[in-house]
Design a protein around this nucleic acid. Structure first.
Lengths: 246, 246
DNA sequence: AGCCTGTACCGTACGACGTACGCCAACTGA
DNA sequence: TCAGTTGGCGTACGTCGTACGGTACAGGCT
């Protein structure tokens, strides 16, 4: 979701000062903060140019004086929120060995994704490469530096862990959104769905799916449990990474 | 992205006949196929109600006779495309042991995601539970049945593998979309970005990120290589799963 | 002090989107 | 034959991002 066509323009905005006010006191920082607040409260689709402008008391089109367009505003929102991740560039690598470090990285990314459910909707496409994104990359790589992996392996392992976290976090965000939009929580939805599904599946035979689905939905009380998937997958992945090491 | 509020209605549509024509020959099947063609060619956002209707030569609002709304059309598109995955319910489990079977499952899911880059944009939220989705679940679980895992572990392992594939496929789809929208391919984009990034990062010091990023982008000729991430991650995950088995 | 020019601000308008509503015409059953 | 039902669809509403052009303020010049 990087800027539509001018990487230079986007990068300059990302790395520039966001606090220099215009005639009416309007700053990039204020615009981005307002957009983040809206997205936190009502989802990314609530952070429209009109609503952001209303929130800070300016005309809609005034935003375009400070930000080239919606795509660049999204990039700014993302980079801003990535700043919440770590206390410093040595934060993750100061938590023990690579295993504890990777776990810490995964948990911090998971936390931020839960706090800002819109985050993963705003990424995808080319990476954002703002200051906080670059710092994140450096901080996370330091966990894997000097433990006997090649540079390529370091990048691959980190990507694997982050991909896992992103996947389960997206799944979690999807369920929360579905609940908000339908007004039905997970249990209510399943109670409404299960009997219809049973009726419609009559005649077909899905023995393993029936048994396993039953067991899972009994335990999770839901159609899926992202928190469990996060923990289970992370353990398996860390075990697999161990084998690369020796 | 399940139907907005009536699970029963959505399920009935998903499992019903899609070939019963109305007065003008319009069928659900034709609507869904047209939408899929548009999304394949130009992305999910091109599959609007107006354009789908134009494509099949009907009025826009006629679609609503056969489909309750956009969300349900998306569900139908997803379930239809999931039908491409396997030749039959015993296809994946007929490919050797659990390891080969899981690999086959991952590769088929990866293939379908590449063929329909919009697929992952159309999922998320509660699962779709159409006939092909249920058949997929059964077929994939059979790979893991009877090898000493609990029902919960079977579900967790499958979810882990599918989450990984989904993550890397989404990353790939994002890059393709970015290329289409910006008109710049990966190399051109990096050539335009790198010097600006270097200038803007002057003064900061990111030694590990610099070294690893350099190495990776040299090898991949891009900011990321989803195909490599797919293969690398799958190997690590399968190794990790092995340890559950012992 | 007066003016000039660049630019911050923003009102209006355009072409997209999903879809509610209501009309018409073609079928169906009596 | 006629009434009732239902498929098809034209129009219109409220949303979106943003192009365009006008207004008015700030800072640098004489």
């Amino acid at each position: 979701m990087s800027g539509k066509s001018d990487p230079g323009r986007s990068l300059a905005l990302l790395w520039g000062s966001h606090t220099r006010p215009g005639r009416s006191g309007l700053t990039v920082r204020a615009i981005v903060d307002a957009a983040i607040e809206l997205a936190d409260a009502e989802g990314l689709e609530a952070a429209t140019m009109r609503r952001v402008a209303d929130k800070i008391g300016s005309g809609t089109m005034s935003l375009y004086t400070h930000v080239p367009g919606k795509a660049e505003l999204n990039d700014l929102m993302v980079d801003t929120v990535l700043g919440e991740l770590y206390a410093g560039v040595d934060d993750p690598s100061g938590h023990g060995g690579w295993r504890e470090g990777l776990r810490y990285v995964a948990e911090r990314n998971w936390d931020v994704s839960l706090r800002h459910l819109w985050l993963l909707d705003a990424t995808g496409g080319r990476p954002t490469l703002g200051p906080n994104a670059v710092l994140k990359y450096e901080a996370e790589l330091r966990v894997l530096d000097g433990i006997g992996l090649t540079d390529l392996q370091m990048d691959s392992v980190l990507t694997l862990v982050l991909t896992h976290v992103e996947g389960v976090a997206r799944s979690h965000a999807g369920l929360v959104r579905a609940q908000r939009e339908s007004g039905l929580d997970e249990q209510e939805w399943w109670r409404a769905t299960a009997p219809v599904l049973e009726r419609v599946m009559a005649g077909h035979d899905f023995p393993v799916a029936g048994r396993v689905g039953e067991a899972s939905s009994q335990v999770y009380q839901a159609s899926a449990d992202p928190a469990h998937a996060f923990a289970f997958g992370l353990d398996v992945i860390l075990d697999g990474v161990q084998r690369l090491m020796k």
